[in-house]
Design a protein around this nucleic acid. Structure first.
Length: 593
RNA sequence: GGUCCGGUAGCUCAGCUGGAUAGAGCAACAGCCUUCUAAGCUGUGGGUCGUGGGUUCGAAUCCCGCUCGGAUCACCA
């Protein structure tokens, strides 16, 4: 709203000075005071040359007299509380109501292109809780960026090569008896993950046996037959040995099928998938190009390094002495391929905060190599997910498997709904659908509402608690609004596409309209701060406010037609905003529950 | 040790481009279902915003020191 301009005009008229709009500090009036918007006058004292109360009084009088939007005002200390004219809220509501895509901008063909990398799994393990946070953040961020008019490419880099995959392959070959996902009755990613674990177990056993014979830990590791075989397998893979590559392809295909199932369940997807097996050689070429241009240097042993001491960082290895690439090399290669494929304006990497340093270095290296998006790349860094009992680290063996967790959430949702009798008049199919929406909604909302940067505690038990600041609370409110609208239709209550500005609007309704008006601002803010949590917390506030309001009135029994229309349109718009906001978070809302 | 991030109610978290008496939810306690879905609503209690300084009319918010916790500083990915 353009009260800001009104205030600016007032200052100019009263004190004959033009001011920057940033001096006009308007904020929502606190609940305990009368008014909608509050002007903080302290910054303006320099201009008025008067004390805070006088200044506020003068500006207030001017606005009330000359600006029709301002109906009343009151002054408390240095705060000028403005009451907005009633008709204004109805106009605002009409405007929101007329906009089908409220808060969502369409992207144009010439909009900046953002590539968002997220998920990035290894092919030797199923996805776990950490991946869930990653996937949800990445997907939500992509939707938020789209809603702000950007063109977005969602991408995934699959780490499909290296010694860890060879470990799984070797274990399968040795002890697998030709097991397949079908024969074992497991998802492919779980099957391969189990073989990875098996390898580790056997390897540890071997080490213990060697150490029992008097070898040190280092000697045992060097002499390990198993590890030797795994390394040999990696060499064969790199050399393109047909049998090894065939096995690798077969097992990877199982894993991908498993991942796809999990992604589908989570509701995330990708526009383009890159595989490290296809990018790591590209990175090597880029590094050599940089070496030739004198950007990097070679050590006596043949290894290639980047000197980043001028940028306040250390020397960074880019190619090993034997010419093989490291993690950084692969990321450079991937970046190159991506840039060849898309005219990227901005690159966003959704990767855990343990890699902050890596991306600091990557940004510098890409910049040196001449990639325009290098310097401005965003490492969308998020914190670890911990369990109430302690850290969630794979080596501590307390990993929460993504598929198990999702299934558990859906089951709990179903049980709870049943207990409450919510599913009584549903078919089994509908019950399953609703349980899936609420179970996943609980999970997604719980994770997304937390500031991404922070480490968070995920308590499975609490997350499925349907009280309080949770996804199901919001979903429930949405479903109830749908129920109101359904019943209005059944009773042939038709409401107009816009309201008469003379309709009386209560304080609580004004408050709700004000919150609705903030939605586009919130969506913008979420994109600027790269934080879906902004949207989640806003939606919760809106829903809570609505619930408190909803409790007080009866729309369908309302005798005054205009007031009933106002409330129906208000409810409709709130549900519209909930749905849009939740879509940006990747959460579904059920029509009934 | 260097660098980065965090510390807000018993617990989980908002608030952080400086603004009024720091907010939610959970947990505890007390109420509200002949009224469109009680997965809800109302009320009560609960805080030296880690700590010490500084800047300012005003600091949870900005700056500096200290402290605690996490991450990282690999020829792992």
């Amino acid at each position: 709203m353009d009260i800001q301009i009104s205030v600016k005009r007032a200052i100019e008229e009263l004190y004959g000075q033009t001011i920057d709009t940033s001096w006009v500090q308007l904020q929502k009036t606190k609940k305990e005071f009368k008014g909608h918007l509050t002007l903080v006058v302290f910054p303006l004292l320099k201009i008025s040359k008067k004390n805070p109360e006088q200044t506020a009084q003068e500006i207030g009088e001017y606005l009330a007299k000359n600006e029709s939007v301002v109906a009343e005002f009151n002054v408390i200390k240095g705060f000028l509380n403005l009451t907005i004219a009633p008709g204004y809220w109805v106009e605002l509501l009409n405007a929101i109501h007329a906009d089908k895509q409220y808060g969502i901008k369409d992207s144009t063909a010439d909009a900046p292109l953002v590539m968002i990398e997220y998920s990035s799994p290894n092919t030797n393990k199923p996805l776990h809780l950490g991946h869930i946070r990653n996937n949800l953040l990445g997907y939500s961020l992509a939707e938020i960026m789209k809603a702000n008019g950007f063109r977005v490419v969602k991408t995934n880099i699959v780490n499909d090569r290296g010694i860890h995959i060879c470990k799984s392959m070797l274990a399968w070959k040795k002890w697998g008896n030709g097991a397949t996902p079908e024969s074992a009755g497991k998802k492919g990613d779980h099957l391969i993950g189990d073989f990875y674990v098996l390898f580790d177990k056997e390897y540890k056993k071997e080490l213990a046996e060697l150490q029992a014979k008097g070898l040190t830990k280092e000697e045992a590791e060097a002499q390990s037959m198993l590890m030797g075989e795994a390394r040999e397998m990696l060499r064969q893979w790199e050399a393109g040995d047909l049998e090894t590559v065939a096995l690798w392809e077969k097992m990877n295909a199982w894993v991908y099928a498993g991942f796809d199932e999990t992604y589908k369940k989570l509701g995330v997807d990708f526009d383009k998938i890159y595989y490290e097996s296809q990018t790591y050689l590209e990175g090597k070429e880029e590094v050599l190009r940089g070496l030739n241009k004198g950007l990097f240097y070679k050590q006596e042993d043949g290894s290639v390094w980047a000197d980043l001491t001028a940028d306040g960082l250390d020397n960074k290895l880019l190619l090993r002495a034997d010419g093989t690439s490291v993690y950084m090399t692969q990321d450079i290669g991937t970046a190159k391929l991506r840039f060849d494929d898309y005219p990227i304006n901005k690159m966003v990497y959704v990767v855990g905060n343990e890699q902050n340093y890596h991306f600091q270095v990557l940004s510098l290296l890409l910049d040196k190599l001449g990639f325009e998006f290098g310097k401005g790349l965003v490492h969308f860094s998020y914190g670890m997910v911990e369990l109430p009992e302690g850290k969630m680290k794979s080596r501590e063996g307390t990993v929460v498997d993504a598929d198990d967790l999702i299934a558990e959430m859906i089951d709990t949702a179903k049980e709870t709904s049943k207990e409450l009798g919510k599913l009584d008049d549903c078919t089994e199919e509908e019950a399953d659908k609703v349980s899936e929406i609420t179970g996943l909604g609980a999970l997604k909302y719980f994770i997304l509402k937390v500031d991404p940067r922070k480490n968070m505690v995920f308590n499975p038990k609490e997350s499925i608690d349907f009280n309080g600041n949770t996804g199901p609370f919001v979903q429930y409110t949405y479903a109830r609004i749908q129920s109101v609208l359904r019943k209005a239709a059944e009773q042939n209550i038709l409401w107009p596409s816009s309201l008469n500005t003379q309709v009386p609007v209560s304080e609580k309704e004004e408050n709700l309209v004000q919150m609705l008006a903030e939605f586009p601002v919130i969506v913008k803010e979420a994109a600027d701060t790269y934080s879906p949590a902004v949207i989640a917390n806003y939606i919760y506030d809106l829903v809570k406010e609505y619930n408190q309001f909803y409790h007080d009135f009866s729309i369908l029994r309302e005798e005054n037609n205009e007031i009933r229309n106002l409330r129906l349109i208000l409810s409709f718009n709130i549900s519209k905003v909930i749905k849009a906001g939740f879509a940006l978070l990747g959460i579904d809302v059920p029509e009934r529950m």
